[in-house]
Design a protein around this nucleic acid. Sequence first.
DNA 1: TCTGGGGTCCTAGGACCC
DNA 2: TCTGGGGTCCTAGGACCC
Length: 414
Amino acid sequence: MEVVSAILHADLDAFYASVEQLLNPALRGKPIAVGGGVVLAASYEARAFGVRSGMPGRRARELCPDLIFTGGHFTEYQRLGDAAIDVLRDYTPDVERISIDEAFADVGGSTQLFGAPGEIAKTVRARVRAELGLPISIGVARTKHLAKIASQVAKPDGLVIVDPNTELEFLHNLPVELMWGVGPATKERLAANGIETIGQLAQSSPQAMQRLLGKAVGRKLTALAWNKDPREIQTHRRATSAGAQSALGRKPATEKVFRPVLLHLAERIARRLRAKDRPCRTVTVRVRFADMRAVTRAITLPAPISATTMLAEIAIDLVGSVLRDYPDERTISLLAISASHLGESVLQLELPFKLADDGLRPGTRKGMARGRADRAMDAIRDRFGAEAVTYASAALGSLSSVPDDFRSLAEKDL
DNA sequence: TCTGGGGTCCTAGGACCC
DNA sequence: TCTGGGGTCCTAGGACCC
């Protein structure tokens, strides 16, 4: 029997804000924002005033004087996000989680047991509402891209089922920016060429789209506009990079400033690399200046590393080289480190001649001591929390505007 | 005190190899 | 006068997504 794939895209509405309204009934029906310096999530009542996530808190307050800033229930976000995804898993093992509040599920093989895809979606929505108290929107379609668009159209707290017989009618009337991969820049380029709907994009020649947007993007969007989406559900996806960044406001571009910040960022990353035995071979830093222009520098090493101090020293060297290349830049506004070319853990463990983390030979005293120190600190943090111990110079009171607990919500499994 | 933080993918050019 | 050709790796930058 042929199993036709039927994709659900489930997306919790205004997730962090909805959780806060769930936990505190006094906030329900009111414009609220999670965050402070920057809006991390806004309730639909706040969105009515134009408040959007990513927006500076001050701007949000201007738009909505009665806006209530709240938040901070990070463990609840994680618990409720997991619980909602688990409801999906009751209907199929083919679940691809995209983020804390969003997932695809292929229920094509589940219809005998649980009914039509649309019925499953209704049940999931009702259960998430009844069992968790949260609104969730779901799109149902034959392909991932269409299911994703359908859930966007369904929001807030809705369900849209795309009939396989009328897919293009549904798709072609919608604006291009609903497509996966069309952001502000691409939208502008398309608009400059008179293309504002997905139907207009579909009617344009593929060659013209590739000239306008580049080969890969042009091809992809042309295919998606005709609802040709070959992507299948991927249940297990490992991260290909791990990074951390910190906005600094405006700080002098001196080593005294950037060294402790980079040490802190390196520690966050290296600890994750060690936890999953996935050392990195490429280290990339990003320096953003006061005017928001950003510069990156990368180096690929002959051997993988995961020691905090090694990662930090490399990042410090790279940032130093950036600043030497831009001697007129006196002020920096953000520092970031990204680790990529991550190793395969199994291979790493079995490699008998594996180099020590810091590139020193395993037998040397310095290499041993450094590895031991990292592992000891990892163990203490595992028991007592990330703040329990830290490299002295990385202990910065108000280093970041976003708490580390919040950062970890966005981390992918390595 | 305008503009967070964690990710993925693509492009273009240069180095280097055969 | 012209000046291989393909493949892989690396770096820097950009766009996008949640």
